[in-house]
């Protein structure tokens, strides 16, 4: 019994000593170091988990200028429809580090909120802050997403201006197939079907998603090329059946095509159900 008492007291004493040392070390840290100390504990905890959010809250408390914590804390809220909280946090991140976080806020506004004017304001501001650098917000060429936002607003002139700028493989090392898809969609809107067909073909060369075949088929039907249109429609349906579908877990993509779209077009032009 006496031995047990000694062991327990020793353990307690050791723990108390370790705690004191740790506390003293924490107190000696700079605010940013303390914030990073709390921030690292978010790892391994799922996005939206209350513990994860708490750790990021502690990081912000330790250093209210730690922009990364605001941005990370915002994500679960915006993904789950709590835009008041999410955007409040994200706005703080942007205020602190605009070059780092304008792109992400533009992405959220463009794809999740369909706030195209808001997205354009963010993207244009980001572009102006980095005059010698070709930004790639959330891994998309900034001119691609600016062009897309204009396209969604129905401003075809500006859409084509920026989508044309995005067609620059040297600048980014690649051109997203969706740049050609969106250029084609704008050309269709303008009634320039021959040009649209060229764009959709480029899009297919880059990536053979079912959507690109559907839009190409639609353009062929507009110039009365029924056999070619029906062939592209059948190819698109095959690609869809094989799983080559443009999709995103969080939101519908612009120009996204569904099985019923193929069926309706096939019934109208190709005599098929």
């Amino acid at each position: 019994m006496r031995t047990l008492r000694i062991i327990l007291f020793s353990l307690f004493g050791l723990l108390a000593l370790v705690s004191l040392v740790a506390f003293g070390y924490y107190r000696s840290m700079e605010p940013r170091e303390r914030a990073e100390f709390w921030y690292q504990y978010r790892k391994g905890r799922l996005q939206g988990d209350t513990q994860r959010q708490w750790f990021m809250g502690q990081a912000i408390k330790a250093d209210p200028t730690f922009a990364q914590a605001y941005m990370q804390k915002s994500i679960a809220h915006t993904k789950r429809g709590d835009f008041a909280t999410g955007m409040l946090l994200l706005n703080q991140a942007v205020d602190l580090e605009p070059v780092t976080y304008l792109g992400y806020r533009g992405y959220v506004k463009l794809y999740m909120l369909h706030d195209y004017k808001g997205a354009l304001a963010d993207y244009h501001r980001l572009d102006s802050l980095t005059p010698s650098f070709r930004d790639a917000p959330w891994s998309e060429d900034i001119y691609h997403v600016i062009g897309l936002a204009y396209m969604q607003l129905g401003d075809d002139a500006n859409a084509m201006k920026y989508l044309d700028l995005a067609d620059d493989p040297e600048a980014m090392g690649w051109v997203d197939d969706q740049v050609y898809l969106y250029r084609g969609m704008v050309q269709v809107r303008q009634g320039n079907y021959a040009v649209a067909i060229t764009e959709f073909k480029k899009s297919i060369e880059a990536n053979h998603f079912s959507d690109q075949y559907f839009h190409l088929a639609q353009a062929y039907f507009q110039v009365d090329s029924l056999p070619q249109g029906c062939t592209m429609l059948a190819e698109g349906q095959a690609q869809m059946a094989a799983g080559y579908v443009r999709s995103n877990a969080y939101y519908e993509l612009p120009g996204q095509v569904y099985s019923s779209d193929f069926q309706e077009l096939a019934a109208k032009y190709c005599g098929k159900e």
Binding site: K43, L46, D49, T50, A76, H77, K79, G81, D82
Partner: peptide
């Protein structure tokens, strides 16, 4: 790290964001 956000995870709690 265990985060892939687009697959199901069993967190065994009701309370979370949202």
């Amino acid at each position: 790290g265990i985060a892939q956000n687009t697959v199901p995870h069993m967190i065994n709690t009701k309370e979370k964001v949202g």
